[in-house]
Simulated scan of single mutants.
Amino acid sequence: MEVESPGACPLKQAGDLPIQMAALPNGKRIPLLKTLLTAVCENNCTYCAFRRERDFRRESFQPDELADAVMRLWRAKVIEGVFLSSGVAGGGARTQERLIAAAEILRHRRGFTGYLHLKIMPGSEYAQVLRSMQLADRVSVNLEAPNQSRLNQLAPDKTFLGQLLQPLKWVDEIRHNQEPQAGWKGRWPSSTTQFVVGAVGESDLELLETSAHLHHGLHLSRVYFSGFSPVRGTPLEDHPALDSWREHRLYQADFLLRDYGFELEDLPFEGAGELPRDIDPKLAWARAHLIDAPVEVNQADLQDLMKVPGIGPQGARAIVSARRQERLRFLGDLRRLGIAAERAAPFVAFSGKRAAYQLRLF
């Protein structure tokens, strides 16, 4: 979606605002305002509506103006949180100072206790990253691309390691080396990133290699895959939008890497490093590995149980807990535990016996 003047959004009527229902780390969903401190940007990203060479009307706020606008919406119970970002104006460090100033006004002068997701600008300094973490419930740095080669095509003014990945490394270092009492409400914020998918020929393998490192090396809570959509007046305006199935499969695969004990080599990449679009990657793995070697429900460990379609982390824990009391014998036992038993049926056994199930005709 193209937004011509996002900086002015908080001053419009509530129905015109960029407010969306957002899922918090604890699973709660809240109305979240997404806004920019300024739509002015000195970077010239090839896909972005706010690139410096694009001709459109731009708006900016002073930090206290934005804080006051957010407070009006929060006190009116229109929103429960805010996602605060900005175009880069005067360098990443100067822009981050202004974002921090807005967050400090919200927290310490206006009494805002709602949810705050604070963007960390490319090129931010260590002290700024630390201060952002002391004010926010979540921080994020948009990597945009999985490596420097792809970033050169998407955002030629940015450096992958120095400007983008380094702040995420600092976030992880701070969480591990400093006491959480220094964070907002006595805990450090979660961290996320976002990739632009489908604009410059990156493969699923490239994206998920980087994603796996972010989850396991830097402990990011989420990696977002933003399907490319062309914007008028940018170099990629004639490039086709991403097939939504690709975005869907990337999320499925990323959750397998993050939560289900899968390794990168477990994923069913095809010749050019792409995931198949016509099948869930977990189901593809199970068909290749479990049809002739079903998982024994009464003996398998958590990791093996989670590799069965229809069984997630919660279901696997429920199985382990239930079998301490009694042996599980039928698919009905799995259903009672809240597991999608029909999906699991072809891939499990009960004390050496394959599950009895009805084959699907379609």
Score class of each variant (00 low, 15 high):
Gln303Arg: 14
Glu270Val: 10
Leu256Met: 12
Arg329Phe: 09
Arg329Ser: 14
Ser244Asp: 13
Leu302Asp: 14
Arg327Gly: 04
Phe255Lys: 09
Met306Ser: 04
Leu305Trp: 00
Glu274Asn: 11
Pro276Phe: 07
Asp243Tyr: 01
Glu263Asp: 11
Asp280Lys: 01
His248Asn: 07
Pro268Glu: 10
Arg323Tyr: 04
Glu296Asn: 08
Gly261His: 01
Ile279Met: 14
Tyr251Trp: 05
Ser244Leu: 11
Leu264Phe: 01
Asp243Met: 02
Pro313Asn: 11
Glu263Gly: 02
Leu267Met: 07
Asp266Gln: 02
Arg327Trp: 07
Leu302Asn: 07
Pro276Cys: 11
Tyr260Lys: 05
Leu257His: 00
Gly273Glu: 10
Tyr260Ala: 08
Ala300His: 00
Gln252Ala: 11
Trp285Asp: 11
Phe269His: 04
Tyr251Ile: 06
Arg246Gly: 05
Arg327Val: 14
Arg249Met: 10
Asp259Ser: 09
Asn298Gly: 09
Gly273Asp: 11
Ser244His: 12
Ala241His: 03
Arg323Pro: 04
Ala316Trp: 00
Ala322Lys: 07
Asp243Val: 04
His289Cys: 10
Arg249Ser: 06
Arg329Asp: 14
Asp243Trp: 00
Glu296Gln: 13
Gln314Gly: 06
Val320Ala: 12
Pro281Leu: 13
Met306Glu: 14
Ala318Asn: 14
Leu283Asp: 09
Glu296Val: 03
Leu267Gly: 02
Asp304Leu: 13
Gly271Met: 09
Asp280Gln: 05
Ile311Thr: 04
Ala272Gly: 08
Ala293Gln: 15
Arg277Asp: 08
Gln314Pro: 01
Phe262Glu: 02
Pro313Ser: 14
Gly271Asp: 13
Glu270Asn: 08
Asp292Thr: 13
Leu305Pro: 00
Pro309Val: 07
Val297Gly: 06
Lys307Pro: 02
Ala293Glu: 15
Tyr251Met: 08
Arg258Cys: 03
Ile291Arg: 15
Asp292Ser: 15
Ala286Asn: 11
Arg323Gln: 14
Leu257Glu: 03
Leu242Cys: 04
Leu264Asp: 04
Gln299Val: 12
Arg324Met: 13
Ile311Asn: 03
Leu328Cys: 08
Asp243Gln: 06
Glu296Arg: 00
Leu257Trp: 00
